[in-house]
Amino acid sequence: MLDELYKEIILDHYKSPRNRGKASKVDFHAHGVNPLCGDDIELTLTVDRDIIEEVKFDGHGCSISQASASILTETLVGLTLDQAHTKIEHVKSLFKGNDIVTEDLGDIEALQGVRKFPVRIKCATLAWNALQLSLQNSATGQSTAYSDE
């Protein structure tokens, strides 16, 4: 049962996170916290002419939240901001089990195990929710951290 949640890919991202740190030039900044479990994720993005060039993450939390943030950084590089919006929506509904996979999602597929562990869905979605809020805020000129309560 545990193996469905903690797939090898997840544990690999957790132990060897990709793109940990801060982007060289910060065009977008997102902060997500889950007060219940103390998870805390900071995302920084470099965007050049609407294309996401670099995504970095920092923070601490459970294996699912950290692996998911690591996967996010790899997923979004090279996308336009619009494409990133669409991708985030799609990934979030995959985690919740509202959507089916119609394309090759790479490592994201490994995170779908959270569907069977409802309390862990918010761990997987934390980084994605935080970035979504940051992108929406930048469109409206606001600045608030995403808090999963």
Binding site: C37, G38, G61
Partner: peptide, 20 residues
């Protein structure tokens, strides 16, 4: 992380709490 620990313990029938 406490949540991961709680999850593994649950799979063994051991109910603990993790959080603040």
């Amino acid at each position: 992380h406490p949540h991961d620990l709680g999850q593994v313990l649950d799979s063994k029938g051991v109910a603990i709490r993790a959080g603040h």
